[in-house]
Simulated assay, not measured.
Amino acid sequence: MEKEFLSGNFQLDETDHKILELLKQNAKLGTKEIAAQVGLTVTPTYERIRRMEKRGVIRSYIAVIDKKKQGFTLHVLCNVQLKSHAADYLDEFEQAIVQLAEVTDCYHIAGNFDYLLKINIRDMDSYAVFVKEKLAVIPHIATVQSSFVMRTLKEEY
């Protein structure tokens, strides 16, 4: 199994998926707790987790922070279209956007827009300043369209 795993032919089985689901719900669970819930002993559970870490299936363990409790009450989905798809325009935009702390996620997308940004910010006034002083100064942006999250129904990490 180790040889298959390292060669890239590794397939996750039902137990692996159960382990991943438990870790998604609570990354602080110990191996003993996970083992009990998936019906294995500690050693094979530990080995499965380590394999998934080595393979990159598990990239990291994080703390999920409540943005509203930090004072970031406005969540924005912002579509950005560039003037051209020239490689240097794309590179310049990407280098600039990853530097902005307000942007929590950035996706290069297909469709009417080129990028989708997730932005967490304090309020509408702060967003107006962000757009004017940070986003609008990035070269080659043709269009920005913002949508404001009214309520989050489902969010996974």
Rank of each mutant, 00 (worst) to 15 (best):
N26Q: 06
N26D: 06
N26R: 03
N26P: 01
A27T: 07
A27N: 10
A27K: 04
K28V: 09
K28W: 09
K28L: 12
K28D: 12
K28S: 13
K28N: 12
K28Y: 11
K28G: 12
L29G: 01
L29T: 00
G30S: 12
G30P: 04
G30I: 02
T31A: 07
T31D: 08
K32M: 05
K32N: 11
K32R: 12
E33F: 07
E33D: 12
E33K: 09
E33V: 04
I34F: 05
I34H: 03
A35Y: 02
A36Q: 14
A36V: 11
A36W: 10
Q37H: 06
Q37A: 08
Q37N: 07
V38W: 01
V38N: 01
V38D: 00
G39T: 06
G39D: 04
L40A: 09
L40V: 09
T41G: 07
T41L: 07
T41Y: 05
V42F: 15
V42P: 11
V42T: 14
T43V: 13
T43Y: 11
T43F: 11
T43W: 10
P44Y: 03
P44A: 02
P44T: 09
P44E: 04
T45M: 06
T45K: 05
T45H: 05
T45W: 04
Y46L: 15
Y46R: 15
Y46G: 11
Y46P: 07
E47N: 11
E47I: 07
E47K: 10
E47Q: 11
E47Y: 10
R48E: 01
R48G: 02
R48F: 00
R48I: 03
I49F: 02
I49H: 01
I49Y: 00
I49N: 01
I49D: 00
I49Q: 02
R51W: 14
R51E: 09
R51H: 14
M52S: 07
M52L: 11
E53M: 10
E53R: 08
K54D: 12
K54V: 09
R55W: 12
R55Q: 14
R55Y: 13
G56S: 08
G56M: 06
